[in-house]
Simulated scan of single mutants.
Amino acid sequence: MKQWYEELFENYAIKYDQEGFTHGTIGECDFIEGEINYEKNTRILDIGCGTGRHSIELGKRGYEIVGIDLSESVLQRAKEKAIAENLSLEFHRYDARKLPFVDEFDLAIMMCEGGFSLMETDAMNFQILASAAKALKKDGLFIFTALSALYPLYHSVQDLMNDNINSGNTEEHSFDLITFRESSTFNIEDDLGNKKTINCNERYYVPSEITWLLQTLQFKKIDIFGSKLGAFSRNDILSPDDYEMLVIAQK
């Protein structure tokens, strides 16, 4: 049985590139470049690369990139876009929990969750972090975004709970205070015109959880900031108004 994220991205590459959250790529890559001091010898792993928007932009700037994703559909579009830009980039279909790389990369990026937060269990999400850590060289850098539990805890949990109690239906939109998981149902039309109903389940994290998980994986320096679309900044202190957090960790 396919998981919701596999079903969503089965034929959703063109539509994905039209999503609003994909429009911050250039600013996000500007930030990434600054974090590696514009060192062109940096070898980068793009986990959950999707249609390759960060990989391609960084490739255009002269970096060596390997992009991985679980979806054949988005990988095919990534390859087509790279060819159109006359770029020779590597894109592979791998499960982010079971990457074959060991001590190979100077930087790993995982934008827009990139698989993390989407898995069915906390253990599976942790496997993604562990796999990324294994792929990095000593002193390697890991930059990723994660859903911030501060947002629903501060803004909407009570409203969600009241809605669920009144409707008697927790399938449309609910947030579990025990597991920090949001369940929602939404309808899409894929690139082939097929209409689908997706039952989504995502895990939100508080900063202390992320810090502890990364420390468990021997990351020595961990910084967490607010995450603004296309405008990552170390000056952006994480607040309850940030839907995502930006994590920068060094081994």
Rank of each mutant, 00 (worst) to 15 (best):
P152N: 09
D106W: 02
A84S: 15
E104Q: 14
Q218M: 10
A13F: 10
N164F: 13
K15G: 00
S239N: 10
F126P: 01
H23K: 13
T25D: 06
Y94I: 05
K220W: 07
T22V: 14
L217D: 09
I222A: 05
I68K: 05
D159Y: 12
S239C: 09
A96K: 01
S156K: 11
R234F: 10
F175V: 01
N194A: 13
G27D: 03
L214G: 00
V102M: 12
G67P: 05
I47F: 08
Q218I: 05
A82V: 07
Y151H: 03
V247Q: 00
L99M: 15
I68R: 07
Y38Q: 15
A13H: 00
Q76T: 14
Y154R: 11
R93D: 09
K137E: 12
S73K: 12
A146G: 06
A231G: 08
N187T: 14
L118I: 15
E90L: 12
L129I: 08
N162Q: 13
A78G: 05
I165D: 08
Q250W: 03
F101L: 08
L58D: 01
S73C: 06
G115E: 13
D163I: 08
N125W: 06
V206R: 08
G52Y: 01
Q218T: 13
G226C: 09
A82D: 07
S55F: 02
E85C: 14
N169E: 14
E189W: 07
I68C: 05
L213S: 14
F31H: 07
E90A: 03
E80T: 13
Q3L: 14
I83T: 10
I68H: 06
T145P: 00
S184G: 13
N86T: 11
D190N: 11
E90I: 14
